[in-house]
Design a protein around this nucleic acid. Structure first.
Lengths: 219, 219
DNA sequence: GAAGACATACGGCAGATGCCGTATTTGAAC
DNA sequence: GTTCAAATACGGCATCTGCCGTATGTCTTC
């Protein structure tokens, strides 16, 4: 039998994490050598271990979306990243892969997929969950590699847009944001509109729900 | 060895469910005899089996919150219900216990708590996760304590309001909610207004951010 | 059967939002 | 130096929202 693969498991819910650990141990020849409940702990493990795999819940607090994947790739290029999330948005899927994820799994997917994904990435391949496979049919329009300096969300947003999104996550209206940033309410509104267009969202409620789920901090 | 306890496992995420199943099997002398991904399937299992335990994710689609617990209690009074959710709202905890749940566990809790909870309810007791223990000042066995002395004063929401709040967490507007529930948009709007008044929130964004942070499921 | 809570439904009004534009300035990239 | 993206700012218009009312029917509780 070959050397078992080593994995870091990152999920903010301890019970879920424990269950996943068992699931991985049983299904595959994989040994979980570290666990993280937040982004900071995860980065510590990435620096401090030589794991083969990272199973990463994108919904973790302190894990501000896709940018984290780029950061981790920069820290440990050899580490294969398996994203496990409830998010099935095509843009998120594409962004995760472009940022360097080796697999994208959804929590409502078949558990067998976890094994298939580990098998695939072990051999240098990639794996996409059945539920998001449709996401890559749409070609990425530009091949600009992600700069990963201040990206905070799956879709390339400008620095200002990230800032607005964070304030939206705190439940602020356009007027609140304008006051906070010292800009015109109309400008704040425009930024919101640009955000919604980029993210394919169509109401304040959707935008706020999206922002909160990114793990942005509460007010 | 005594006869193993039998359990129904209800969670909408297949991978999470699988992990939980393993976790339960390993930690306790419990055998999962049925699984459900939605409320309808769950009711079928409740009717069709004689399980001892139900481990129930309150965030499941088609599981209209606390009401479901009462319904299941009515169908199978002998079935012990362990609520497992990300929701740590005090009033939800209380409502779940009053509706007949035997344990209330949070997903970010210590996995050991799952074992402790099973042990507790097996012997006819109740178990509350550490993270929500503050929600209850008195044992849940007796009737409601006077609300006047309640320092935390959890705001009581009606069943319908909980339902609306869950839909708000999905980024739905009043019109969306009205369509979903088959009621007038004006009524949906009124429910939203009542919610905001009770929760002291003052915009759609705030209400949505609140709802999402409660751990209510994404659309 | 009286009282109260709940869910239903409607309307006015001011303000915010979603969507469509246009336009200027700045700084980086080429 | 030109080009381009980003950030700034404004306006119109339809819709939605927040807040203030009123009202009816049901159901539980006393």
């Amino acid at each position: 039998m070959k050397r078992p693969l080593t994995a870091i498991l990152a999920d903010d819910h301890a019970i879920i994490r424990e269950g996943l650990k068992l699931l991985i141990s049983v299904m595959e020849n994989v040994s979980v050598i570290a666990e993280a409940a937040d982004g900071e702990a995860l980065l510590g493990h990435v620096r401090g271990t030589r794991a083969d795999l990272l199973i990463l819940d994108l919904g973790m607090p302190g894990v501000a979306g896709i940018q984290f994947i780029s950061d981790i790739r920069a820290l440990a290029p050899r580490l294969k990243i398996l994203v496990l999330t409830a998010n099935i948005e095509p843009r998120t899927v594409r962004a995760a892969l472009e940022a360097g994820a080796s697999a994208y799994l959804t929590k409502d997917g078949d558990p067998e997929e976890l094994g298939a994904a580990i098998e695939a990435v072990k051999n240098g391949g990639t794996y996409l969950a059945q539920t998001v496979r449709f996401a890559i049919s749409e070609p990425a329009r530009n091949s600009r590699p992600p700069a990963a300096q201040d990206m905070l969300s799956p879709i390339p947003l400008t620095r200002r847009e990230h800032q607005i999104l964070a304030l939206v996550a705190q439940g602020m209206t356009a007027r609140d944001i304008a006051e906070r940033l010292g800009i015109s309410p109309l400008t704040a509104r425009k930024h919101r509109e640009n955000l919604m267009r980029k993210l394919n969202l169509h109401s304040a409620a959707e935008l706020t729900a999206y922002a909160v789920r990114l793990g942005l901090p509460a007010g």
